[in-house]
Design a binder for these strands. Structure first.
Length: 434
RNA sequence: GCCUGGGUAGUAUAGCCAGGUCUAGUAUCGGCGGCUGUCGCCCGCCGGACCCGGGUUCAAAUCCCGGCCCAGGCGCCA
């Protein structure tokens, strides 16, 4: 087949390109065979477009290629873009020749067009077909913009991107929920957070961030938990919880503006009407949240973390993004700094979107003696943290930071209610494949 | 870890509670045929399924027990 020199993308197939000649590459999304006239919907990275083929105008070779066509086959066609009022899209490609580059099997185990519903299990079993649906692919195109916008924003504030180990010798935040791995003749663990490393690294770079996968061996089986997730983490020297809350707010706003600008088409595909939230985000304290719950008849013992039902109630009241601050010190990990005015409270916060926890952070303890005390109070063994504690002897500035769940943020931005939809290949207690 | 619900063609479902009329219905899908403007094309014919094992019963997709698998909720967390 002779190839015209210019590749035309699906998004080029519109009225203003009437007369444009070239070739198209992509996957057969749909086939509508009317006999003498055949319509194919072609899908490429830019979207879908319609191809029209008249059997009596095709060569013998192209006709035999056309007989091989099946949904999801990879094809190449030569053709011309035509403004076409008879097509609802206003334009189509009049095909001169067609070649099947890679034939797909029939029947496919999964309906890419979406005429028939698929269960979450089927979708994940055939994830690579599931992702071919434009509205599923759109989630990850938005995700790409989110990651880019995060890097752009944090670097603009002087943060340095770092990479810390995924394979660690001991727990960072308590003993539970770690995956064991065989490490030569030793037992090691998969990191559940970069917490201690990023704190140490502020003594080198002052401001660091890391975007990467972390692992939690939680028994959770819910729509918002997976065992391998992506965390966006920052840590900043000479800063407290309020400083990093401002950064988090600014990041969310920047990300949303960027997504609105770069991913209009994807947002439309997902039918999402995204709005830039107004700053500053609402901030309520733990004690205020407790009073709000009490006013609707939920009495809660002071000191405990919120249950899911309580968060749902708070989320009903506070739509959109908001912070809950000043959690009881004992409900937080050992490295969170207690308030100087009241040691029972901590300089901590969670960023919420309605009832979903997106991020949690705070001012960290920068004094070694206090940190050791808190480790002990948490029932952990300080000697397990020897390497970390030593760092506090070498000049440790006040610092603060947070960790933001990337997939959860993506859930919020794409209005998805199951986190498995916002990660390409989810891992949970029951799923290790594909 | 605890609790709840579910498993019927490739996919998604009806049927199950109240066992027989289920030779298991429908949609999509696949095969064949027809169709020159479809756009979730349409029309006709054909094809394909009761998770596994045991039990109850004259009779089991349906009831009971065990197993496997899946979905969701709680606690915990991002």
């Amino acid at each position: 087949m002779q190839k015209l020199e210019k590749r035309i993308f699906a998004s080029d197939v519109n009225e203003s390109n009437d007369g444009l000649a070239g070739y198209l590459l992509g996957w057969v999304h749909e086939v509508r065979d009317l006999g003498a006239l055949v319509f194919l919907i072609l899908r490429d990275i830019t979207g879908t477009c319609q191809l029209s083929l008249r059997r009596n105008e095709l060569s013998k070779e192209s006709l035999s290629e056309l007989e091989k066509i099946s949904k999801e086959s990879v094809i190449m066609v030569d053709g011309v873009v035509r403004a076409e009022p008879k097509s609802r899209l206003g334009a189509e490609v009049k095909v001169m020749s067609i070649k099947v580059l890679s034939k797909s099997v029939e029947p496919l185990p999964y309906d890419v067009v979406g005429k028939v519903k698929a269960s979450m299990n089927t979708r994940l079993e055939y994830r690579i077909l599931d992702l071919r649906r434009p509205e599923h692919r759109a989630i990850f195109l938005i995700g790409d913009t989110v990651l880019n916008a995060c890097r752009e924003y944090l670097r603009s504030l002087g943060f340095v991107e770092v990479r810390t180990p995924r394979i660690i010798a001991t727990a960072t935040e308590g003993g539970a929920s770690l995956f064991e791995v065989k490490y030569f003749d030793k037992i090691a663990y998969l990191a559940q957070s970069p917490q201690l490393y990023k704190e140490e690294l502020v003594t080198i770079f002052e401001r660091v961030f890391e975007i990467g996968p972390f692992f939690r061996a939680e028994e959770s089986h819910t729509r918002r938990h997976i065992s391998e997730f992506t965390s966006i983490d920052i840590e900043a020297a000479f800063s407290n919880y309020e400083d990093v809350m401002d950064i988090l707010e600014g990041l969310i706003v920047h990300v949303i503006m960027k997504v609105l600008f770069e991913r209009k088409r994807e947002l439309e595909l997902l039918n999402v009407n995204l709005k830039v939230p107004r700053r500053p985000f609402l901030r309520i304290t733990y004690d205020e949240a407790l009073r709000e719950l009490e006013s609707i008849g939920i009495k809660k013992k002071w000191g405990e973390d919120f249950t899911t039902e309580e968060l749902r109630q708070l989320g009903r009241k506070h739509l959109g993004f908001y912070f809950i601050t000043h959690f009881p010190t004992d409900s937080k990990p050992f490295y969170i700094k207690p308030c100087e005015s009241n040691e029972l409270l901590s300089e901590s916060f969670d960023l919420m979107y309605q009832w979903l926890e997106l991020s949690s952070g705070g001012t960290r303890i920068s004094d070694r003696a206090l940190l050791e005390r808190r480790i002990r109070e948490k029932g952990l063994n300080p000697s397990a943290f020897n390497y970390h504690l030593k760092v506090y002897d070498y000049g440790m500035p006040q610092h603060a930071g947070w960790g933001l769940g990337f997939e959860r943020l993506l859930m919020v931005l794409t209005r998805k209610t199951n986190i498995r939809e916002t990660i390409l290949f989810p891992r949970d207690k029951f799923r290790l494949m594909p």
